[in-house]
Nucleic acid binder design. Structure first.
Lengths: 219, 219
DNA sequence: CAGGGAAGATACTGCCACTATCCAGTAGCT
DNA sequence: AGCTACTGGATAGTGGCAGTATCTTCCCTG
């Protein structure tokens, strides 16, 4: 199909399709002449995946490119899962120093909390993992706010996070070694977070409403 | 204290403090003269909260303003919790039509799945809730991708989301009617998501590494 | 063989979150 | 009183991101 039909089929403007090609998110069509190329179903599917990762997953164009690159280089299941896990952007990144040095105490206290948590959960992750650094940064900020995020609290959340990760991995590995593995794994690993967030917000809304209904005092 | 000291104490540039004031995120200092104002500890705390909501919570300046406005209007516990729940931005918002109409079937199928889920979980939320709409949009996109998000799958995630929401609400309500309630509730409700996401990613990393270690075949 | 797409390159736009500059008007020291 | 560093407020500018538009060249189709 021609680019105009690809655009019509996916609802993505032609200019945007060209943009995604430029940015390396979408492979070029099969050129049939200097100014003509043929696109196939794989382009339709890829565009849907791009839309899902950016609008649902909230990934930037650059992050989406990185993630899709790992999809295209998929070898075996384990390597693919690991590559995707590291290609996904970390939600919290350390600040640009500046005031980081001022609070070395909070920093190391937060780092200790993270280490305790990882030990308590028996998680096997290197101390250099970007996720560890992100969590440390987050705990440092929360400490500054006097928020109640002591390790005991965290463990309860960590247990639940562990259960969710197990569900995710079960699903991602269910496509074991099939050609569609990498793509489905990306969908599971990248979109599980936003889906869960939506469910959590919904559950939160339910609980808040029940509280309000239980004792409708003032007002 | 003067604005320069407020800046030094929080690590936020003076220009940014002025920006937050303009945008209504930070109340003005107590003016002591036409060109001089005095700031207090509440300004320090508010700036920390702004930083936490934007950098950790990922909220935009506009969303942060809305959330902080509900904090400042806090009356009683239940109302405050409800107000915050609705002031927080919904992660997934419906697209701008366009290709929405093309897929009315997927749309209604997704809506039916969401209704089934809410019924199965016995959640009390109005069908007009932004979270319901967001979830519907997300499921529609996932259906297009042929992703495995059938209701049975979703229920497992929903149960976990429910547990998390219960933990959140317990914490948010623990500050019951104290003056700090609203602020702590915001921290819990707005930052629980990012914290959980970080923990989930960490747990995911652990699981991926264990898989890789269990059977280190090719390489 | 004329006209409408198509491809690729380049330039432009709109939004966001700051950041910098400018303009008085003090505060506080001498 | 005079000087200077700093302040609040207004306004303008910056850089990054995600597209969107334009322009040129080319060539398939009717």
């Amino acid at each position: 199909m021609k680019i105009s039909e690809l655009s019509r089929r996916t609802g993505v403007p032609v200019a945007s399709i060209k943009y995604f090609r430029r940015e390396g998110l979408l492979p070029a069509g099969r050129a049939t002449a200097a100014t003509l190329a043929e696109y196939g179903e794989e382009h339709v599917q890829r565009l849907r995946l791009i839309k899902a990762l950016t609008t649902l997953g909230g990934l930037s164009i650059a992050a989406t490119r990185d993630v899709l690159a790992t999809v295209d280089q998929a070898e075996n299941t384990d390597k693919t899962l690991e590559a995707i896990s590291y290609a996904l952007p970390v939600p919290v990144t350390a600040a640009s120093a500046g005031d980081a040095d001022r609070d070395a105490a909070a920093e190391s206290a937060a780092a200790a909390d993270v280490m305790d948590l990882i030990a308590a959960m028996d998680w096997q992750v290197p101390g250099t993992s970007p996720h560890v650094r992100g969590l440390t940064t987050a705990l440092r900020e929360l400490r500054r706010l006097d928020a109640d995020y002591r390790p005991e609290r965290l463990v309860a959340y960590a247990e639940l996070a562990h259960s969710i990760a197990r569900l995710d991995l079960e699903r991602a590995a269910a496509f074991d070694d099939s050609p569609a593995l990498a793509e489905q794994a990306v969908i599971v690993l990248a979109l599980s977070g936003p889906m869960l967030e939506l469910l959590r917000r919904l559950a939160q809304e339910d609980q808040v409403r029940r509280r309000g209904a239980d004792h409708p005092d003032a007002e």
